[in-house]
Nucleic acid binder design. Structure first.
Lengths: 180, 180
DNA sequence: TTTACTATACCAACCAGACGGTATATTATT
DNA sequence: AATAATATACCGTCTGGTTGGTATAGTAAA
């Protein structure tokens, strides 16, 4: 797969994510993605052999991006818990914060497409448990962080952005206390 | 609205929830719901003037049921935080645990349909903050509880059911310590 | 108590448009 | 020229929604 195809694929995925964000996770149709991306429907199906393949790629990109962020933070010396928290915060702050919409699009299309996400979650929990010596407090902080993310994803967050930031700082501080 | 209509509406909603759970949140079509519920498509549209109205009713039922549970626990003397945690646990344990699928179905159809959920969340946070004197620890416990629920909803939970139970107990214990 | 009327609850058939996907043609790139 | 990339034109199916109608139940007048 050369560079041009990669760029095109990325554009298509980005368009699909924005459709999901604006019209609803279940409204990701090939016609609409074609219109938004500027490519024709035939063009989409050249790069992704089916709609399912497209959504699967969206999910994979989300998983890969998040994992890359986390690995980078780990390499900088952060522990598993704080790196996870920071990686999540980055996802939320993203200017084009639609990346996570892949999850809802997959849940709408076929829940089975989410298994890469589950696997990534399992690895994460394992890492955190190993590092914290199975301290449930660590998992609790991870879950709280997750919830803020889920709430944003569904646009049901009861917090203002400032409150969310404060909460994230609070969680991060607690994590640092926990794993010095 | 008399009893018969109420029963029929409930049956339709139940069928819609099971379709969402089995086929995916975006696959809730009138045809499929008609087939599963045993009513005709015309019958559905007699009770719910549009698909959107049906999904909206699903969301409202979820909000109402949860709020009823919570109020009952509050009346028994529980505080806002522990009653919320217990109400969430009940939702998860429900034999026909599809109720929460309303959220994903709404996210698939039109994200705006989720605003009742957001309002309910706001009330919840307000109650918890008032009772705890704005102690962020209380919100943190609420979020952790939420996350377990979201993970189940999307079938991406990295925990076994036993681990989930343990975590819920841990959260509940912490909540009781926090608000004696 | 029968009869006429009305409202509720539901259904089968249909429609116009949207859907995912295919087949084929056309244009760029190498 | 050969291959990769994109566009156009369709096709069969499914979609949300409409229509006209039926059966049942209640209600009121005779």
């Amino acid at each position: 797969m050369n560079k041009r195809a990669k760029v095109t694929k990325a554009q298509i995925i980005e368009a699909a994510l924005s459709v999901a964000a604006e019209k609803g996770a279940g409204k990701v149709t090939l016609d609409e993605v074609a219109k938004v991306s500027g490519f024709s429907k035939g063009g989409l199906l050249y790069h992704f052999p089916s709609k399912e393949a497209l959504i699967s790629a969206m999910v994979q990109q989300l998983v890969d991006d998040t994992e890359a962020d986390r690995q980078q933070l780990l390499a900088q010396g952060d522990n598993a818990l704080t790196s996870m928290i920071k990686a999540h915060a980055r996802l939320t702050e993203q200017v084009q914060g639609n990346t996570a919409m892949a999850i809802l699009a997959a849940a709408a299309e076929q829940p089975g497409l989410l298994s890469p996400v589950q696997q990534a979650c399992q690895v994460l929990v394992q890492d955190i448990n190993t590092e914290s010596g199975d301290n449930p407090e660590a998992v609790l902080l991870m879950l709280a962080c997750d919830a803020l993310w889920f709430q944003d994803l569904l646009s049901i967050s009861p917090f203002t952005s400032q409150q969310k930031e404060q909460l994230q700082h609070y969680i991060l501080r607690r994590a640092e206390e926990l794993m010095p």
